[in-house]
Nucleic acid binder design. Structure first.
Lengths: 184, 184
DNA sequence: TCATACAATTAGACAGTGTTCAATAACAAT
DNA sequence: ATTGTTATTGAACACTGTCTAATTGTATGA
């Protein structure tokens, strides 16, 4: 209950409007109860973000089920990410705005979800790098992170471009040129 | 005074430890005064972040003065960015963690600073794309954003890698392969 | 020198926030 | 019915951003 209520708040008003008390009010409980369950503000957000990761993952897996290799698959997956980020902007932003206090790292179960998301790109990349799995992994990391960077700076108006089509143009050029180099 | 005091707080304890009241206390003034000058928490952070952008810009310009074209220049600039992000982690993180409330955009003077930073890559890229300035701009945006993405996910432990040398490896491969494609 | 006008600064309030914890309520098993 | 366990509460604490009336400071003109 708490997670889905919190998700709704973030989704409609953004992470900055999120508060444990609001969640408690929305589900008809007290803050005390919420704290007994989640322990901290931090942890509650983490669980909400986890559902966002799950949703993204489901979308990617669905896309992958239609087509599982070739450059166009990579582009489609990139497009998936961009679309998700655009249409679930506040939830997506919460994944990165949420700054955990220094010297604390993400819990294992959460990092696993991230890793799963990243590994998705490896399969369609494999045939493009002579089935070298090490190369595929590195390429997957590079491409994912690059797409994310373009998406982040693009959607937060830090690139001198407008609209998701421009973002798509940049990621497409990135994928085309990078893969051309890496599979040469 | 306020800006440099705030910078110190963010630098040593991170954005989450930052508060207007702490800044006021540190400089021997009251919150009221701070609010008369900066108007909002938001705006104060923006000005602190601006000095971070300035520092980054100065570093890049210095690097550029030594060598102004060729792929190795791009790599050196990327390396600059990564090093800055690592050694000024909290300040750098504040640039992106700071989420402005929805439906408000960054002020012009701030966006100009960002644009200036991005344009730095264009000059050394120009000879690599047949002096096509449009291509150079797009390549600059793509490379910058990609480097940023790799840096962000790498330094926040969202890539399955450790240490800045690995980040450097990814960015180098990105630059090599992307430029190979774009200048072919 | 004094009075006036304007700017800077303050104290204090308001409505929130995250967090903790003793006390209560609900419920299961004996 | 009594115990032990778990869920839930309410109130408190120390903060936070934000606003405004009142105060202090500081120049300028007579």
């Amino acid at each position: 209950m708490a997670i889905s209520a919190g998700q709704k708040i973030i989704n409609s008003k953004g992470l900055s409007a999120f508060s444990a008390r609001k969640v408690a009010r929305d589900i008809g409980y007290t803050i005390g109860t919420l704290y007994n369950v989640f322990g901290s503000h931090e942890n509650l957000i983490l669980h909400i973000n986890a559902t966002t990761l799950d949703d993204m993952n489901a979308l990617m897996v669905e896309q992958l089920s239609k087509q599982i290799n070739g450059k166009s698959t990579i582009k489609k997956l990139a497009s998936c990410y961009i679309n998700f980020a655009e249409h679930n902007y506040n939830r997506w932003r919460a994944l990165f705005n949420h700054s955990l206090p220094s010297n604390t790292s993400l819990p294992d179960w959460y990092e696993k979800k991230i890793k799963k998301l990243f590994s998705i790109l490896e399969a369609p990349l494999l045939p493009l790098v002579n089935n070298n799995s090490k190369k595929a992994k590195q390429a997957a990391q590079t491409i994912w992170a690059s797409i994310h960077g373009i998406c982040e700076l693009g959607l937060t108006d830090k690139l001198d471009i407008v609209g998701t089509t421009s973002i798509q143009t940049l990621t497409d050029s990135l994928i085309d040129n990078y893969i051309a180099g890496v599979s040469a």
